[in-house]
């Protein structure tokens, strides 16, 4: 059974068909990319999978569980994590506290535990801190753990969001435009990071505009336009696909 199965999923906003009868799978351990011209519906797909938008028709399965009726936080509990194109970073907290929030689904202390500082909550706090610190180390941001995240440059904030998505040890991570706004060095770092976490067994789904990045790192690529899938395959197949080239006509298509 594949980790994620998207079957005949459609979603409309008023009269606009954002996603149209989409079907694809994400196999365990794979790195898959979704590309397409602007407005093709890529982020909508992400929002449908992570529960932020409701599906009009079709089903999405995660490890066999139907995601359709679930709220985003429940989906996080299942082991699916994501980052956001427009950064959903909490700028009223420090870097490490942001990452600590990522562990919410794996921890348990509630209001009463917190108020009375019961043993369980004390131990859990320490545990959360340490795991968050490790996550920051994996993205080389641990030196800035105590800083307010709002003071960081955009590229570093993106890394913090990745660390936050990683810390709960999810099976699948969805990265929404992970390299947009990054410089070449930062892109390379992210490329290495993704390979590293993939080697640790994580499955990765990403949405991107940066062709070179996608073709370099993804094993499978899905191309969508106007909410419909127009091609699926490995990078070399996609690059030479007639329909894909047509879809991008008018946009610059640069592949290294």
């Amino acid at each position: 059974m594949d980790l994620i199965e998207v079957r005949n999923v459609s979603k409309s906003f008023g009269g606009l068909r954002a996603v149209s009868d989409l079907t694809f799978n994400l196999g365990r351990g794979k790195i898959k990319g979704i590309i397409g011209p602007n407005g093709a519906g890529k982020t909508t797909i992400f929002n449908l999978i992570s529960g932020i938008l409701t599906i009009d028709s079709g089903e999405i399965f995660f490890k066999g569980t139907v995601l359709n009726r679930l709220k985003p936080y429940q989906i996080a509990y299942l082991g699916l994590s994501r980052t956001f194109q427009n950064l959903q970073i909490f700028d009223n907290m420090t870097v490490i506290e942001n990452v600590m929030v990522g562990l919410h689904p794996r921890t348990h202390s509630e209001i009463l535990h917190a108020i009375f500082r019961l043993g369980r909550s004390r131990n859990e706090e320490r545990y959360i801190f340490e795991k968050a610190y490790e996550a920051l180390q994996s993205v080389n941001m641990e030196s800035r753990a105590a800083e307010m995240v709002s003071g960081l440059p955009f590229g570093d904030q993106k890394l913090v969001e990745v660390a936050r998505a990683l810390v709960a040890d999810p099976e699948v991570i969805m990265l929404d435009e992970p390299v947009s706004g990054l410089n070449t060095q930062e892109i390379e770092r992210l490329d290495d990071l993704i390979r590293k976490i993939n080697a640790q067994g994580k499955t990765i789904l990403l949405v991107e505009h940066n062709m070179r990045f996608v073709m370099n790192i993804c094993e499978e690529v899905l191309v969508v336009n106007y909410g419909k899938m127009i091609a699926e395959g490995d990078p070399s197949q996609i690059v030479s696909n007639r329909d894909v080239i047509n879809a991008y006509l008018g946009e610059e298509l640069r592949i290294a």
Binding site: S50, I52, Y73, R82, F84, Q88, F90, D91, P105
Partner: peptide
């Protein structure tokens, strides 16, 4: 700050 982000984090 970011209700959607918080939901997505569980």
């Amino acid at each position: 700050k970011k209700e959607i982000g918080a939901e997505a984090m569980g």
